[in-house]
Nucleic acid binder design. Structure first.
Lengths: 206, 206, 206, 206
DNA sequence: GATGAATGAGTTTTCATTCAT
DNA sequence: AATGAATGAAAACTCATTCAT
């Protein structure tokens, strides 16, 4: 117990910086957050940050990685606990995704808010991390019972776009991550059932 | 005619700056674009920009306004020409929106890419401009024939989120704005229409 | 006359910076001279230097180039005016070299004092400039009437080493560049000429 | 024996730091070598250096002292073994000097490469050390049989300048310290004998 | 003997902006 | 309408150094 303390304190410093950075990167964006801002937030001098991180970009990458890890864990845990129905699984993933994105912690939000092209030197790393996370949704969408003419990629990207836009308009109290996930999925779900019930009538136009 | 020439040339200079700024703001983000970058792009010195604009933020606001105006005009024109069916009208609006967003001009993209919170001094202006534009979609969604339990706000925000996410993944050639608009609307119309048609049958769970 | 004034003033600013930098680079060395030092010496703010030079290294290169040009011109002019005798020509070159090196202007001194390896990014440029200047001495040494066993490269490098060491110990008043050049050449000419004339008989003493 | 071990190990650490510093000071110069560079080279943290040395300048002084001691010992040993002839003694000293300067160890090179004026606080110490070493050459040059009009100081400073310039151009394989010393001395040796033997007839050629 | 963590002053450089011309 | 020259503040980062542990 006491043996763990020093290590823990050490980690605390690093985590403190990461925490503050995550909050600031969400609030003002990476480019508009200065090392001064971060240092002030953790009660250090700007130069002291460089004991823990080699550069401001490295800090972003660390925050981003943590964000990806957290949202990944959240979604994976939700999927492990989810019912087998493909729509329910997708909804569970969305709920977890939204919960991370709209929750108290800023890490996941950094992942969504930071445009890799704003950070040329770390662009590939960030894109890679994000792609690896979002890959989960490929499988989830592939599993959906959908008419063959539905473009599953577009469906997935619609959903991801819809979810990642929520931080712009979401107000706590008026909605919940779970409620939103339900509504999102409901708005997309019916095709199969519907197609079954009423034939392919829906897709005939002209 | 000749009397208009000087004014026209003047406007040309101004527009040149706006054009270059729009491109750069999209490429690297507002905060990471320097007045030097812009000046270089138009073959001026940084100080010379200040004959045309009072500040870098003013430049952003001007680009943003132009972007809002262009996308608004695009959508309004599309609506004027659209069939009366509410879904078709929404689809026409989406198509126009996507066409502006994914087209050659960067103005509309700036509107979507720039987070007002990145520019505290102009935040309210930008939010106002954007809200005024997006208001169009409130009416369009209100007009849809939907079961009463559908949350039209969420539907609209889903759609807007989905559309504004396209610049991240859209690749010319593989898709078209029109094609995407069609798929987006189809992915929403079928389930929601179906829900109406077949009652509450879809929503039985547990 | 008045038309030239603005250009002249403009050049004056740049030259002022170069002058001050040359002095400081000689006094404290490139690495130990800060942009603050330079700016203070010319009555500017550090950032203002960057209107004139892209980087501190660029400033060094500019000073170095000016130094090479000045010492080259000095030596070339001396050679044009020199007697035809090879030893006298070499002496004239040495005198000019020393005059530039030990004179009031610091430019030539920077060339000798700055070790290219101290400035990795500009190393090649500096080495190239210096080599081009020193090439003059290859021809001058090749023209000397010397016994065949004399290594003319070593002779030249001895002389250059001897000359470039003078700033360390030279005290105005006690000597003059011309006097030193005479002594340097005399110290070499006599033995080498003699060796030719009298074979290996030189080693008899008392 | 075991009692000496800790001291020995302690000295090893110190010497390790000195060794690494010598190498780095030669490679990049004192000003451009950071304590981080040194610490990294010996596998320590920067702060740990301060157990062994009070400051970076102290480290330089220690390296410099070691360099002066080594080159002094080298030259003194060579002189002890040298023939009595003054020119041969000078040549022996040069050979030893060059051997130290161009050899594997960087210590002597630091002495030659470091400009005391780059290190204001230690300037006097360094100048004193160097002067004490170079004093050897005063005696050696005073002993030379030379015509009275030869300025022995200039001769000595020429030689020292020539020798200390060798690290700039010396390439192992193409020459050896001994070979260079021989050439240097040969290029300077004859004056007296020659003057005696052939009078002022030396300057007639062709 | 050495580390982990930080300091405080400093570094070079960049930025938006100003203004006389 | 634009330039040349600068400003002043701030940027990211580095440095030698300190010190409790």
């Amino acid at each position: 117990m006491t043996a763990l303390a020093p290590k823990a304190r050490s980690n605390n410093r690093r985590e403190l910086i990461l925490d503050a950075s995550a909050v600031l990167f969400v609030e003002k964006g990476f480019a508009s957050t200065s090392t001064r801002d971060i240092a002030r937030a953790v009660g250090m001098l700007p130069g002291s940050l460089y004991y823990h991180f080699a550069s401001k970009e490295d800090l972003l990458v660390a925050v981003f990685e943590e964000g990806v890890q957290r949202i990944s864990q959240g979604v994976d845990a939700a999927l492990k606990a989810a019912e087998p129905d493909p729509w329910m699984r997708l909804q569970a993933a969305c709920e977890a995704h939204l919960a991370m994105l709209l929750g108290a912690s800023s890490y996941a939000h950094v992942v969504i808010r930071t445009l890799p092209s704003d950070v040329p030197d770390a662009e590939k790393t960030l894109v890679g991390l994000r792609r690896a996370y979002e890959a989960r949704f490929i499988g989830l969408c592939d599993a959906l019972p959908l008419p063959s003419q539905v473009d599953r990629s577009v469906l997935r990207l619609m959903l991801i776009g819809a979810m990642n836009h929520t931080p712009v308009w979401y107000r706590e109290g008026r909605d919940t991550p779970a409620g939103l996930a339900r509504k999102f999925i409901d708005n997309l779900r019916a095709p199969l059932t519907c197609a079954k019930a009423s034939g392919e009538a829906n897709f005939e136009e002209d």
